[in-house]
């Protein structure tokens, strides 16, 4: 029963970027920055209810930021890349950690949102790519013409197509579920947990996720209902 056998595995310790804990910290920080974007983007988008003048002015304002816009975009892209990198390397490690699965396995403590992070993430990514092609570059703009600069027209015309709205609503619900887990999980990953504050944080994460999802979904719903024309 000796353990003094030459090991085929290396015994060099991983550094911050190599360790599971370090990678989760990367995931948490990048996730937090992306969460800030989600809030900012929602507040900007809700100006659609103020009419075309206000929304188009906001769109012009963003485009006039020039280099600053690209700096922000660069940070966001970097966050997305790092967030996905951390997820991918950890996912591969986690898959290898249990080569033989269970015949029967039940979940006793985790929520549906917790367990579906690996699904909600990639679907939201696919949505973001579609969303950028539809409303930023205008490459895909079904059943109407994309007019650069006329944000209000593009939004109304885009969401008038039922399946675009349906896909948007579906993806945003998944984003809400992703945030429901991520918003409190990021604190845990960064080592912040408190017996009294964490239950409050979990409740807050749920409500913030619901509010964000409801806020975003209100736009296609209003277009489909004819409230925003």
């Amino acid at each position: 029963m000796s353990t003094a056998v030459a090991s085929p595995r290396e015994n060099r310790a991983p550094g911050f970027w190599g360790s599971t804990n370090g990678r989760k910290a990367v995931m948490a920080v990048t996730g937090f920055i992306l969460f800030l974007f989600v809030i900012g983007h929602l507040l900007g988008n809700l100006q659609v209810f103020d009419g075309p003048v206000r929304l188009n002015a906001y769109g012009r304002f963003l485009h006039n930021l020039g280099e600053l816009l690209w700096i922000v975009r660069g940070i966001l892209i970097l966050c997305v890349v790092l967030h996905i990198w951390a997820t991918f390397v950890l996912w591969r490690r986690n898959r290898d950690a249990r080569p033989i699965g269970y015949q029967v396995k039940k979940s006793v403590a985790s929520s549906y949102a917790d367990r579906t992070m690996y699904w909600s993430g990639p679907i939201v990514l696919a949505f973001v790519i579609f969303h950028l092609l539809e409303f930023t570059s205008g490459t895909i703009h079904p059943e109407s013409r994309f007019i650069p600069g006329d944000v209000y027209h593009n939004v109304v015309a885009g969401f008038s197509v039922w399946w675009v709205s349906a896909w948007y609503i579906f993806a945003l619900i998944l984003l809400g579920m992703h945030l429901r887990h991520g918003l409190w999980s990021m604190f845990q990953s960064l080592g912040l947990n408190h017996p009294r504050h964490t239950p409050v944080l979990k409740q807050a994460a749920l409500w913030i996720a619901i509010l964000i999802t409801a806020g975003y979904i209100s736009i296609p719903v209003s277009v489909l209902a004819g409230w925003v024309r």
Binding site: G22, R23, L90, V108, D114, W184, G191, H194, P195, T198
Partner: peptide, 30 residues
């Protein structure tokens, strides 16, 4: 594997070790 903070471990732990210790580990590690 890595922790995804979902709490299945605490749910089955015979000593009900709280998830707080994982945050503690992350904190001390970072």
């Amino acid at each position: 594997g890595s922790c995804t903070n979902i709490g299945e471990c605490t749910g089955v732990c015979p000593k009900e070790i709280p998830l707080e210790v994982i945050a503690r580990m992350n904190h001390d590690y970072l």
